[in-house]
Design a protein around this nucleic acid. Structure first.
Lengths: 341, 341
DNA sequence: CTGTTAGCGCTTTCAG
DNA sequence: CTGAAAGCGCTAACAG
């Protein structure tokens, strides 16, 4: 039996420092806390030395227990293997660290039960705030938590949860995409989206798409979901005569991956038979065919603002709920050159 | 000023439950702990009811403080935007959850100072074990931590740190790659790796490569690092006559991404002018050119075993340090068809 | 089986 | 400016 538990117990504690420096625990506490100003130089430097000689590290658990401030932020992510989530999370984490907070990330794998468990978990660790990027079923748990701590939603809205929201200006992004396709001469557009599951951003993108298409009489637009039959559906789309040059509009990176797979299966000539524009900008977009045109989201920024939003609330801001919409940036590559057939 | 702090304080505590159920705190503690067997049915059910009526959630911070067991595992990741790390982390997290542990992930962004900070942080939260996937500079800090808790290294060894290690059988993987290239008729191979920074797996792959090449007289092999001049170097490689058909061997996903970019810049005909095999298997490999042949790592498994390793140690296993080497799996795609010129 | 009693490591009044 | 003392929420002997 190894004795890690013994090691754990034997860690140097505030009392050790106090004794070593010949002062009281209170002074040590003041030293490591915000109240260093209240200490005489003599005592402060004795403590400083004792700390470094002993290699003392304050125990955050204990601090948190007493003060109710753990300096911990929780983040609930639906799918950690989605590059968008990773990028946002990276932004959040960076911002956290800059402000002395740490991030506990929980991946729900799109599973409701895991969402519930993780919610309970985060709460039990006394996190101070929560960033949510999931479907937010378990509305009750979430609302309960919302009472206890500030919360900010990322990318997807949760019904009946009055919480700040940061994400993409979806209507504007979709319009940008459609306008670009139109300008390049495409007239027959198929939007590819992951299956409807209530994700608000997904819904917004699709409805904006429909609205945009409706405004353009010369345009034809339809929507399909990714899934087993995507290839067949794309094939139908490609075979069916339409009002003009065809293009795909992929609603996110996952859809772009699936669509490109299908197009290849169909032996499609990328991207001369069909155009393609995708939301999100993944690092491999330039590599396939003539390159995939993208609408990049400022993911890093989105993450950072999510944290800053939280921080404001933590600092006492009690204003009305805010929504932060960022703009997408168009990156034109070969997939929308438009020189079709 | 909102009153989250008040909310935090007002959370229902064990004492509330005890009073509500008319029992002692100790009984409640037994109920939520492992000692439920010691309670009479009558009391147990009273407590159970009180808990659900009050919506009580044990405070892990407090439990951790008292017991020295936080049920927290830390993971230090060098680059969270590397798909390999994500996949491993996903494996770790899944395993953690299955055993009632939670994972705190710290991303160092390949930055030594951040590594140091995060190490201090993890320690201050009393994590019970650590999974390390970084360069492990700050050896002193690491070794100190190693005294206090079990640790397992993933993918990269750290000098003078006697710790379990789980990763890929690099020599075998490299041999598999070279054998495959040879079989497909390639004779002139350039290995592309990220810059040398002491990463052990990187070093192993390169030295195995050199060893493999040395064993094959008909073979020519060289090594380049990714970086600003990669395109130029690849160009030189392609222009310089060699012993036969040329191929690239990318030592990981990042190198594969960079190399493919460069090949495109060079207007290379993917992959008829040059073959390509890459370690790691990323989701977009099938999409570029005729598809990139890959040596897939069992990342999910690697993550899971890393955690299981840790768990064994946590449970008291004090045996000698172990090394777990997983095997890569060859996935042949168009980039090594070999029908060159 | 159950309650009482000390703390875990730290912060925070409240008196000097 | 500094220290003593009282907990934060929970667990773990130790007695009943």
């Amino acid at each position: 039996m190894n004795d890690f538990s013994a090691a754990q117990r034997s860690r140097v504690t505030m009392l050790d420092v106090a004794e070593h420096a010949g002062v009281s625990k209170a002074s040590v506490s003041r030293f490591i806390g915000e109240d260093r100003a209240l200490l005489s130089d003599a005592i402060a430097s004795r403590i400083e030395q004792a700390i470094s000689e002993l290699g003392y590290r304050p125990n955050q658990m204990a601090r948190g227990l007493k003060r109710g401030r753990t300096r911990l932020i929780g983040m609930l992510v639906a799918d950690i293997r989605n590059p968008y989530s990773i990028a946002v999370m990276h932004g959040v984490e960076t911002a956290c660290r800059q402000h002395g907070y740490s991030l506990v990330v929980c991946n729900t794998d799109r599973d409701d039960e895991q969402e519930r468990q993780h919610l309970a978990l985060l709460r039990s660790y006394n996190i101070e705030g929560l960033i949510v990027n999931t479907l937010g079923h378990h509305r009750d748990e979430l609302r309960e938590l919302r009472q206890e701590m500030p919360m900010v939603l990322v990318d997807r809205k949760v019904e009946q949860l009055d919480s700040d929201l940061v994400g993409l200006d979806n209507p504007a992004a979709v319009e940008m995409a459609i306008a670009h396709l139109e300008e390049r001469g495409y007239r027959d557009v198929l939007m590819v989206t992951e299956p409807y599951d209530g994700t608000s951003s997904r819904i917004e993108r699709v409805s904006s798409f429909k609205a945009q298409v409706a405004q353009r009489p010369a345009f034809s637009g339809a929507v399909v979901e990714t899934g087993g039959d995507l290839t067949a559906r794309l094939n139908t789309f490609l075979q069916t005569p339409g009002p003009g040059p065809k293009a795909l509009f992929c609603a996110n990176g996952i859809a772009a991956l699936a669509s490109t797979h299908s197009l290849r299966e169909l032996k499609c000539n990328l991207f001369e038979d069909v155009g393609l524009i995708a939301l999100d900008d993944l690092d491999w977009y330039p590599l396939v065919g003539s390159g995939i045109t993208a609408l990049a989201q400022p993911t890093e920024e989105i993450g950072a603002s999510a944290f800053e939003c939280l921080l404001k609330r933590l600092r006492g801001d009690d204003g009305p709920v805010r929504t932060l919409d960022f703009s997408a940036r168009l990156i034109v590559r070969g997939s929308t050159l438009g020189n079709l057939r």
